Computed example of a mutant assay.
Amino acid sequence: MPEVIFPGPEGRLEGRYHPQKAKDAPIAIILHPHPQFGGTMNNKVVYNLHYAFLNMGFTCLRFNFRGVGRSQGEYDQGVGELSDAAAALDYLQALNPNAKHCWVAGFSFGAWIGMQLLMRRPEIAGFISVAPPANMYDFSFLAPCPSSGLIINGSADKVVPPSDVTGLTEKLQQQKGITITHEVVDGAGHFFDPGMDEMISTVDGYVRRRMTETTR
């Protein structure tokens, strides 16, 4: 098992790390949903995103936020979790100093954390935001949003109303210099069951298209 333990701000963090053979392979971190509602790095959406990026040639890391699984510390309202994500990216970059590109993907609460990480780390070239909880958290910090990315949600999401995700997307799409792509998986709920295959296929197509554009 590719289990890793790495230092975080409040003690050790537990993760799963899959490197590529190519030393300059792009890197991606994947962030899990809310720790207080059963969110872990083994959530199905997170697991599938991890392997989608791996299959596209990325070196991937997913991990448990503080207080989840074997990660030390306790839930910190998103503040500490953002620090955890920054520590995870530091760890991934230290192992892969020659990586060509850096991406972040997050699901639900993890999407909110991922978008904040995007604001802190200019080296992040792209993002995948799955079912971002626009009805629960303030995303106004994305002013301006520094990178282009994909926002994807289900049309039958009962946790995050699709209209809230559309509203967030429309605000971001007004910004210049970036392109925010918005896709809706018809009939999918918050956890994409059904709809997982279509969501992952959409992510795969989007990332491959972006990577092709950057290598031209």
Rank of each mutant, 00 (worst) to 15 (best):
N135C: 03
G177S: 14
P9T: 01
A156H: 07
Q36A: 03
F191H: 04
I152T: 06
R210F: 14
G189C: 12
F192P: 07
H50K: 11
Q175S: 13
I29E: 00
H50G: 08
L49Y: 13
N96P: 02
V207M: 05
A28V: 13
T40S: 15
G177K: 14
G67W: 12
G187P: 09
A143F: 09
M196T: 06
F109T: 05
F192L: 06
K158H: 03
G67V: 00
I178P: 03
F127Y: 10
H32Q: 09
E74Q: 15
I27E: 06
C102T: 09
R121W: 04
D84P: 08
P194E: 02
R208L: 03
M199T: 01
G195H: 02
F109R: 11
A88H: 10
A86Y: 14
N153V: 06
M196G: 05
V160Y: 10
P19K: 05
P132Q: 07
V207N: 00
D204V: 08
L168M: 12
F141A: 02
T40Y: 13
L95C: 09
V160A: 09
D76S: 15
F37T: 07
S147E: 00
N96R: 11
Y51A: 00
W112R: 12
F63T: 02
L31K: 08
C102P: 06
V130L: 12
M56C: 14
G205P: 01
N55S: 15
F58C: 05
F65L: 09
V160G: 04
P194M: 13
L31I: 11
F58R: 00
R210Y: 06
G15R: 02
Q20D: 02
E81K: 12
M1R: 14
R210A: 01
E213L: 13
E123F: 12
S147N: 02
F6G: 02
Q173W: 01
L150K: 07
N43C: 13
L31E: 02
D186C: 14
V104I: 11
K100W: 13
A156G: 03
A125H: 13
F53W: 12
L172V: 04
D186F: 14
P146R: 00
D157T: 07
G195T: 03
E74C: 12
V79L: 15
Q116H: 15
A88S: 11
V46I: 02
G78L: 14
F107K: 11
C145M: 14
V203R: 05
G187F: 11
R209N: 04
A94H: 12
T166V: 14
A52R: 06
A156Q: 06
F65C: 08
V68K: 04
N96T: 11
R70E: 08
I178M: 10
Q116G: 10
A25T: 04
G110V: 08
Q174I: 03
E81M: 11
W103S: 13
K100F: 12
A87L: 10
A25H: 08
V45N: 00
L95T: 00
S147L: 01
S71E: 10
G149T: 09
D76G: 05
A131E: 10
